[in-house]
Design a protein around this nucleic acid. Structure first.
Length: 809
RNA sequence: GCCGAGGUGGCGAAACAGGCAGACGCAAGGGACUUAAAAUCCCUCGGAAGAAAUUCCGUAUCGGUUCAAGUCCGAUCCCCGGCACCA
């Protein structure tokens, strides 16, 4: 078959017949199938795109044949750093290179033959899209969910911009791997922490990979404990957060983060020099050093003492850089006997180690003892379990107004401003008189100017563009200037799935009616690397929009699948520098896109991925050739003669229906490799039947038609072609998916395994559903098995119907 | 350290809910067809012993539960992904 020719033929046909487009009239049967949209890169589609888009398309086509009105849109996450960095290197404007890349990708995506609904295409860099990204920002601002504050932020000196916590990996920039430094800057944040509890608890009901849910849980990092107020001799007070209030009697020191304001205030003159020196040394340490767990715990006594509210004991206050100012209260109580860090610290600075919890059963003398146990040395709280003591001690402090129950989250607010050019401008105006003034909705979009000098110098490129920057204040009419920062591209991608179903709406980002009908996304497919970024941000934005009344559901993605990663033939991640990149194009030219797609389906477990091997594609080529050869025979079959439905027909009918049942289920669960395996078995059975001298032509034709329908989602062009050759006038994708006839799966006779004392001893054929009695009889007559039973007493007979018989003798 | 997912032939991988381990394919070997090659078709293909029938062993390691364990339980080792001085 001339694959490249028929691919074109059917792609044109689908386009002409509108096979791929979602019909809103059938929205009650909608199935929203979405692949994570991609960044428009200059290179052609790589294997990863194919693996994501191609295979999920097969799933979508399967759903379509199952009777769903499938909505499978496509678009581009078009803002972002690579285009800008490319521009800095080559002088090609980001807009020009991006639009050109998009054009390229559109073309190759069409060549894939996926049933994308191109009518709903989105490009986040279009004014008609980012207008609504800005709208979203303003709505969050109105709600108090977008705010500006000065804070120590992650700064990538190479990208010349701030980064969200999520974009810092091991202290390095996610993108360029430069070491990230802390800078004190005033930046825009989204208040995702306000939704910490809901994004956490909502995970329980999601059909998502457990791994991803646990990564989000981890990232959100909920811990339940108490905040306890310590006094000082000077009358100042500060709070510590602890999850182990049961160890409060064991406190022998208190440690404050070096940045904590009380450090400067409480340090005594005698200690000032040492403390200043310590703070200076700390500030020199890089973020990576400071975050290392193996780093020695250090600190410095500041000369002041704190008073433990539970027993009024005086304990020394230290400044210590293992205490993070950004978490909890920036102050911790030191309980050396029951915390490893505190233990090391106490040994180093010779502080008392007081045990206040003992093991529940038996003595455990090892310190630090970090498990829960029974309280000791804790006055009236002695003898309680840790769980009880935690509550009781905080309750006692609540009464004295010196503490409260408290939940802390590790999650930080999402830093969304970027000092870069190629993004959506932040739609606010800074006025000396009126402060921060949101751009009026009627003035959106705030257009990103084209003629901008974006060579990096540590400041936002837009700041240098006077025509952009200088505006009149919408309130007072006086001179004012725009915000020179742009939004993190994750803001653009945090709501795109809402825009697709109503992509051309010029009056609002999306109609409430439409999204309430079309969302949540029924199946979302993409890489696992987005677990704590895109997937978390989108959930937050959905909930925020819900609370503002713009939609009526809680979660954007009901069901999520992560595809695995296809590695180079050497088992390493594909990269140009390694020279192990597999280019789909070469294979598609030679074997066709369906062959390539099927190879990916059959060769890997979808969620695992693995190294590419050249051998697989030849095998699939052979498989398709075999199908084509058989189709020629089927077409030429003379219908008349044999209308019998005997044993051979029954056998084939069994395989046919078994295949339908299995493939149906496998497609539904992204178990593509086994679905293809079942189809191969079916084809083998069809060949076996075809080899018979007597065959029922009508029946074989039907069985073969079923085969092609099962294959169609996985090899769309090829199947359409064969389908047409079989004499069908309409697209195979308009025919209903085959339904398994359960009756055909009931066999008269089954082969079961026979074990004696649990060891395999042979196989026998028995009528389906025989009684134990009959089995005994059959066994005693079996010429191979009967002699082995002679003179032995059958103590017990275990029968697993249609599978196995275990004879205990 | 914590959380999560894994470890099955020469290779990619299957195994519903504890019930014939290795489906389906690749590679390899043998054969048929052919002048020959390609293509196609047939057979073998976890290991060991045996002429064979057959037997024994085998799902990272050790132990347990069970008539029966890749699957369940306990311990250990290894690999991958994530988090990590989070109090």
């Amino acid at each position: 078959m001339d694959y490249n020719r028929i691919e074109k033929k059917w792609q044109e046909y689908w386009e002409k017949e509108k096979i791929n487009y979602f019909n809103p009239k059938n929205a009650d049967k909608k199935y929203y199938c979405l692949e994570m949209f991609s960044y428009p890169s200059a290179a052609k589609l790589h294997v990863g795109h194919w693996y994501n888009y191609g295979l999920t398309d097969s799933f979508a086509r399967y759903k379509k044949m199952k009777g769903y009105e499938v909505f499978q849109p496509v678009g581009f996450d078009a803002f972002g750093l690579p285009a800008e960095n490319y521009a800095i290197k080559t002088g090609v404007h980001p807009k020009d290179s991006t639009l050109k890349n998009i054009e390229n990708m559109e073309e190759t995506l069409r060549e894939m033959g996926a049933m994308f609904d191109w009518n709903s295409e989105i490009k986040t860099c279009d004014e008609s899209y980012y207008k609504w990204t800005q709208w979203l920002f303003l709505k969050l601002f109105e709600k108090g969910l977008a705010y500006r504050k000065a804070a120590p932020v992650n700064w990538c000196p190479s990208c010349n911009t701030v980064l969200a916590n999520e974009q810092v990996i091991d202290g390095q920039c996610e993108r360029c791997h430069s070491t990230v430094v802390k800078k004190n800057l005033t930046q825009w944040f989204f208040k995702i922490t306000g939704y910490a509890e809901e994004v956490l608890s909502g995970l329980n009901d999601l059909d998502w990979p457990e791994k991803t849910k646990s990564m989000q849980r981890n990232w959100i990092g909920k811990s339940t404990g108490g905040e306890i107020e310590f006094g000082t001799e000077s009358g100042d007070k500060f709070k510590v957060f602890t999850t182990r209030a049961d160890t409060l009697f064991g406190v022998s020191f208190v440690a404050l983060a070096p940045e904590h304001p009380l450090v400067a205030k409480l340090t005594t003159p005698e200690c000032k020099e040492a403390v200043d020196h310590y703070i200076y040394e700390t500030s020199k340490a890089t973020e990576i050093d400071r975050l290392s767990t193996v780093r020695e715990k250090t600190g410095v006594f500041i000369g002041a003492y704190a008073i433990n509210p539970i027993n009024n004991k005086k304990v020394p206050i230290f400044a210590a850089d293992y205490v993070l100012y950004s978490y909890g209260t920036g102050a911790v109580m030191g309980v050396p006997a029951h915390d490893e860090r505190d233990f090391v610290f106490a040994q180093k600075y010779d502080l008392p180690i007081v045990r206040v919890v003992k093991g529940k059963d038996g003595e455990n003398d090892d310190l630090p003892f970090t498990q829960y146990g029974i309280t000791i040395n804790s006055q009236k709280f002695d003898g309680m379990t840790s769980e009880e003591a935690k509550k009781a001690i905080v309750n006692e402090l609540v009464k004295q107004n010196k503490g409260e129950h408290k939940i802390n989250y590790r999650l930080r607010d999402w830093l969304v401003s970027r000092q870069r050019y190629w993004g959506a401008p932040i739609p606010v105006i800074h006025c000396d008189k009126c402060g921060i003034v949101p751009v009026p909705y009627k003035d959106l979009p705030v257009k990103l100017p084209y003629d901008v000098e974006f060579k990096p110098d540590g400041k936002s490129p837009l700041a240098k563009h006077e025509g952009f920057m200088n505006v009149k204040c919408p309130i007072c009419g006086g001179d004012a200037h725009r915000d020179p920062d742009t939004l993190d591209t994750f803001v653009c991608s945090s709501w795109y799935y809402l825009r697709y179903p109503d992509a051309h709406n010029a009056k609002e980002p999306f109609s409430k009616d439409i999204v309430d009908k079309m969302l949540p996304v029924d199946k979302y497919v993409g890489g696992a690397e987005h677990a704590c970024m895109h997937l978390l941000y989108s959930r937050f934005i959905t909930k925020a929009l819900r609370d503002m009344g713009y939609l009526d559901f809680d979660e954007p993605f009901k069901s999520l699948v992560h595809q695995g990663v296809i590695l180079g033939p050497d088992g390493m991640r594909m990269s140009k520098s390694r020279g192990n990149v597999i280019s789909p194009d070469d294979y598609i030219k030679q074997y066709g896109s369906d062959t390539f797609r099927l190879t990916l389906m059959f060769g890997f477990s979808y969620t695992e991925g693995g190294p590419w091997s050249d051998d697989g594609i030849k095998a699939i080529g052979k498989f398709l050739d075999r199908i084509e050869r058989l189709s020629d025979k089927v077409v030429q079959l003379k219908a008349e003669k044999n209308g019998n439905f005997g044993k051979n027909e029954k056998d084939l009918d069994y395989v046919r229906n078994y295949t339908i049942k299995c493939v149906d289920k496998d497609m539904d669960t992204f178990s593509f490799n086994t679905a293809v395996a079942r189809m191969m078995e079916f084809l083998n059975a069809l060949y076996k039947y075809d080899a018979l001298s007597e065959k029922n032509a009508k029946f074989m034709r039907e069985a073969f038609s079923d085969f092609i329908m099962l294959l169609a989602p996985c090899a769309p062009h090829f199947s359409e072609e064969i389908w047409e050759r079989l004499g069908n006038k309409k697209s195979v994708f308009l025919s209903p998916y085959p339904v398994c006839n359960e009756a055909a799966l009931v066999k008269d006779e089954v082969e079961v395994a026979v074990q004696f004392n649990s060891k395999m001893r042979g196989r026998i054929v028995v009528p389906a559903g025989v009684s134990e009695e009959e089995i005994r009889k059959i066994l005693s007559q079996d010429e191979k098995l009967a002699p082995m039973l002679e003179g032995k007493e059958i103590k017990k007979l275990i029968v697993i119907p249609n599978r196995l018989i275990n004879v205990i003798i």
